[in-house]
Design a protein around this nucleic acid. Structure first.
Length: 465
RNA sequence: GGCGACAUCGCCAAGCGGUAAGGCCGCAGCCUGCAAAGCUGCUAUCCCCAGUUCAAAUCUGGGUGUCGCCUCCA
């Protein structure tokens, strides 16, 4: 498996710490609001990575955290009068619902920051004792970036002075680059934790370091194989995580770093401040989760993703073709996938997840399968292999697993289904009587209802447009 | 201001030095009572300029444009 390491800025061969096993840690959401399309893309990117590795025979341990203590959550507490747990549990549940709708496999470990306070405390204590951190008069604890000559090696930011001068920083900070490990509680703080390093709460970056150390053993050289997240996390978040862990544990945090590209809405960055955030929940009211999934995975994970409805509909048509083929081989039982086809998909996905190539192979398989089925509609052997091919695709990419007839009926209520069946029955009758004027009229009526029909050797079937 | 990414057919998008995958749309044909679906065929020399090379969309330099990070952010 070749992956792109965003620290080395190059494609490299994945050589896990333990042969045959891959440990992955992905930065999950801060749970103060619903998840947006950016979260979806990130989760989907690493879901595909994990599925690919599994299909290649690796044993994967995927860890995705929830940041459940944060200034934004506190702000929400103040606004709503709710407790921390009420807010975070609510959004964690909503997040997991969204991920399920998108077909994202659950992470093996889903730690919360608040469950790792003891570990956070220990790391900070360690850093203080070894002079990598210092406490200022307010009780806040900062990491001293000048103590680590490898600081900057993750993000490749060499000359930070200039840029960081733009950022306001606390007067007692020794260096503009230094960042907070622990925020001491102020008088009006509504949430704080009592620890040996003081009363307060952890900074953002330290959580991930602590959770990785808590859940992964590593090999004394690295804690985990792959650390992932959105491209915006490369700096400062991952830089800071890396330096903390390096100084506290004496080894690198991750052997490889992978970052997914951004989601843009109609060419603009999606962000809260621009007011163009697109929640997964909202998208799901318009489009089926699988259609959204297929659309979001159809662009290489490192590229920017420009979300727009036109492309989504285009993408849906591509998925439709897979399901139409599945209709042709349903019902039957599958045999084993075509070995050449399977090998081609795995080879493409092994090259840093070349999804475009993979999808083109799938399109070609669909075309050639349709062609064979046109010639030999009753060939059981072929039908079984085609179904097995589709099942392999479902396994690898998490698409095409639905019962094909139901796929085309998503969003159609039972009353309408009965009405459709009646109309099709009347049309079949009219056709039998060669009353094509009537049968065409009925077809037009169905189209007006958003239903397309197609006559097949097995009778007339319909699809929601 | 510092750092970085990207620029391929109307649209989406592969390609990573050897002579342009795939999908959508469009056109023609087969199939069909007519359609739809499916199948077949057709449609680009790769932002501009200069260079390296037998050979460049692919490498180098210079432009132009778009986007991102540097501030909470996936």
């Amino acid at each position: 498996m070749i992956i792109f390491d965003s620290v080395k800025k190059a494609k490299v061969e994945l050589e896990p710490i333990v042969a045959g096993k891959v440990s992955i840690y992905v930065c999950g959401p801060t749970v103060y609001d619903d998840a947006h399309l950016g979260h979806a893309r990130s989760s989907l990117s690493f879901d595909i990575l994990s599925r690919t590795l599994k299909a290649l025979g690796y044993e994967v341990t995927l860890c995705k955290n929830f940041t459940d203590i944060d200034d934004k959550i506190i702000k929400k507490m103040q606004q709503s009068g709710k407790t921390l747990e009420e807010i975070t549990n609510f959004y964690i549940k909503r997040y997991l619902e969204d991920m399920e709708a998108l077909g994202v496999q659950k992470a093996d470990i889903e730690p919360k920051a608040t469950e790792s306070l003891k570990d956070i405390e220990n790391i900070i204590k360690n850093l203080l004792e070894n002079n990598f951190a210092y406490k200022i008069s307010t009780g806040d604890i900062y990491f001293d970036t000048t103590k680590d000559n490898l600081y900057g090696s993750i993000s490749g930011k060499v000359n930070l002075e200039d840029t960081l001068n733009r950022v306001e920083h606390h007067g007692e900070k020794k260096n503009p680059k230094d960042f907070v490990l622990w925020k001491a509680s102020k008088r009006d703080d509504i949430i704080s934790f009592d620890t040996s390093i003081g009363n307060g709460r952890p900074g953002w970056h330290i959580e991930c370091s602590a959770m990785i150390d808590k859940h992964f053993l590593g090999d004394g050289k690295y804690s985990i194989d792959i650390h992932g997240g959105g491209a915006d996390l490369l700096f400062p978040h991952h830089e800071n995580e890396a330096t903390q862990s390096r100084c506290a544990f004496g080894h690198e945090l991750a052997k490889y770093w992978m970052h997914n590209g951004f989601v843009q809405i109609n060419g603009e960055k999606m962000s809260k401040s621009l007011g163009n955030s697109f929640f997964i929940k909202d998208a799901l009211t318009h489009y089926d989760g699988e259609i959204l999934r297929f659309y979001l995975i159809s662009v290489h994970y490192r590229n920017d993703f420009n979300f727009n409805e036109e492309d989504l509909l285009m993408s849906k048509k591509r998925l439709d073709k897979l399901y139409r083929l599945k209709k042709r081989v349903t019902p039957t039982s599958s045999s084993t996938p075509n070995q050449t086809f399977k090998a081609k998909l795995l080879e493409a996905m092994s090259d840093d997840m070349n999804i475009s190539l993979t999808l083109s192979y799938i399109d070609e398989m669909i075309s050639s399968s349709n062609e064979i089925l046109d010639k030999e509609p009753k060939n059981k052997f072929i039908k079984k292999e085609i179904l097995a091919n589709i099942e392999f695709i479902s396994h690898l990419l998490g698409i095409g697993a639905k019962e094909p007839f139901s796929y085309f009926q998503i969003g159609v209520d039972e009353d309408l289904k009965i009405k459709i069946d009646e109309l099709i029955e009347s049309r079949t009758q009219a056709k039998k009587e060669k009353n094509f004027k009537l049968s065409d009229k009925i077809r037009d009526e169905l189209i007006l209802k958003g239903i397309a029909i197609m006559d097949t050797v097995n009778g007339t079937v319909w699809e929601k447009l």
